[in-house]
Amino acid sequence: MDEITLEAAPVLGGANLEISGNRIVERDDLAIVSIATPLDGQDALAEALRNGWSLDVPDPTRSTLSGEVRAIRTSPDQMLLIFPHATPDAEATVQDRLAGTGYTTDQTDSWIVLEVAGPDTLSAMERVCPLDVPSFEIGGTGRTVMEHMGAMAIRTGDDSFLLLSASSSAVSFLHAVETSYRNVT
C-alpha cells in the first residue's frame, strides 16, 4: 500500500486579504486552550497563571497580555489562553504549568482567528458587531453574535482586532467580515 502523508491545512487556506489599505489575515499559528476555575480555586489558579506566564487573571470584558500569550475572560469561571504554538500538544503544555489548578480543554481547532487591521476597521466592525467596539479599551473583549454566528472580538490596537468564530462556519464568517469592510471602503 502507498505511504499516505497527511498535511495540516488552515481552515480558510491561510486567508490574507487586502481591502483598500485594510487587512484581514487568518492566524493559524495560534493555539487556544480554555481554563475553567475549580470551585473555590480562584487564588491557586491566579498564582499558577502569574508563575507560569506572568499573567494576571483578566477581569470581565478584559484580556491580559504577557509577551505573545493572551488570557481572555470568557465567563465568570473561565478564560481562554491564546498563544503561538506549532505542535498539537497545547493543552498538555498549559496543564504542565498549571499543575492541576485549572481544568483545561484544547480548543485550537474549534475556532478560527482573524486578525483585522486598518483605518476602516472601526467602521467595518460597527456594521457587523452589535457591541460598542469603539468604546473598547485596548485589550477589551466581548463575545456576541455577528451575522448570526457566535464570535469573540478582542481589541489589540487603535485600529486592530482579533476576531474568533467557529471553524465550522469559518467561510461564512470571513465573508461577513470581508463584506463589512467592502461596504465602508
Binding site: 470568557t74 465567563s75 463575545r143 453574535v145 457566535g150
Partner: peptide, 13 residues
C-alpha cells in the same frame, strides 16, 4: 416579573 435568562451568545451565565 422575575425571569431566568441565559447569556448563550455571551459569557454563558
Amino acid at each position: 416579573h422575575r425571569e431566568l435568562w441565559y447569556h448563550e451568545q455571551g459569557d454563558r451565565s
